[in-house]
């Protein structure tokens, strides 16, 4: 079985700060990490490898520095890593990104057919959850998003059965391979890389593919040119511009503060009186 895992290197969004004057992202000192949801996908692929035997290839598109993300994936146990990097891919939106990735995956398939593709639920920088479905659609593969459990992989029949998160419950779906899965967090717990694996990952040769190697011939489909969406404006969230009415009393004791607050609030918003429906003890 050949499993492909798509990963992305992202800035750690928890540590991003916006410059208070220029409203621009301050990237300095913000560490680049592997998108956490992609690590969940990688772990799920590695678990299938442990159970059923498989070759796991990781694929990433990004600047040359994204090599670090792929080495990380190798240290966890991926067998091969491919970095798709070319200036022509810069500025791509999700449609142009899925075009380049799908094109590279067609090349990978020439070498060895791909049975399963894993992707994270979404990234923490873009949050779109669109590239996975885009790749599946372009490659005409079955798409299973928000997978919360893999029930069974039947290689002889070429089928996979999964549980998929839906509104109000879980769908149990069976489909034919090859398929693309995006997995939910909480499906597994990431393993630790061992020392020997880290050494192997550091030495392992990485395949670096430019647009030619990836089989991209139509340059109007990639990068900024291939992106139908345009960012027209970036701005900081506007304050509501009416500051809270600060409740004060002479004593500033909790009971007085609260009594004043309730009196003011129920006068101005009388509908709220009826909204209070305490639960029985």
């Amino acid at each position: 079985m050949h499993i492909l895992v798509c990963i992305k290197q992202v800035p750690d969004s928890a540590q991003i700060r916006v410059h208070p004057v220029t409203n621009t992202i301050m990237r300095q000192g913000v560490p680049a990490i592997v998108n956490p949801y992609d690590l969940v996908a990688l772990e799920e692929a590695l678990r299938l490898k442990d159970r059923l035997g498989a070759r796991v290839t990781v694929l990433s598109m990004g600047p040359p520095q994204a090599e670090a993300a792929l080495r990380k994936a190798l240290s966890f146990g991926a067998d091969e890593a491919i970095l798709l990097t070319d200036r022509a891919f810069a500025g791509a939106d999700t449609l142009a990104t899925s075009y380049a990735l799908a094109s590279a995956i067609r090349k990978i398939r020439e070498d060895m057919p791909v049975d399963l593709i894993f992707a994270g639920k979404q990234t923490i920088d873009g949050d779109t959850a669109q590239v996975g479905p885009g790749i599946a659609t372009r490659l005409n593969m079955q798409l299973l998003t928000y997978v919360s459990h893999i029930d069974n992989v039947d290689l002889e029949r070429g089928e996979i059965t999964v549980q998929r998160r839906a509104e109000g419950g879980v769908q149990v779906l069976c489909t034919r391979l090859p398929a693309l899965l995006t997995v939910l967090e909480g499906i597994n717990e990431m393993r630790f890389a061992t020392m020997p694996d880290m050494f192997r990952a550091a030495r392992h040769p990485l395949a670096i593919w430019d647009r030619e190697a990836a089989g991209v011939t139509d340059l109007t489909k990639v990068g900024l040119k291939g992106s139908p969406t345009v960012v027209s404006r970036v701005f900081a969230p506007t304050p509501r511009m009416h500051r809270a009415e600060i409740i004060q009393t002479q004593s500033d004791q909790p009971d007085d503060l609260v009594a004043t607050l309730l009196a003011k609030m129920f006068t101005k918003f009388p509908d709220l009186r009826a909204a209070v429906r305490p639960r029985c003890a």
């Binding site: 939106d93 509104e167 969406t229």
Partner: peptide, 23 residues
């Protein structure tokens, strides 16, 4: 932007080759 809407929108936009803005 539900599990259904995001799944469907991603596939439809790719098939139609048009832009999609999430969330």
């Amino acid at each position: 932007a539900t599990t259904m809407g995001r799944d469907l929108a991603g596939s439809v936009a790719t098939t139609l080759q048009t832009g999609l803005t999430a969330d």
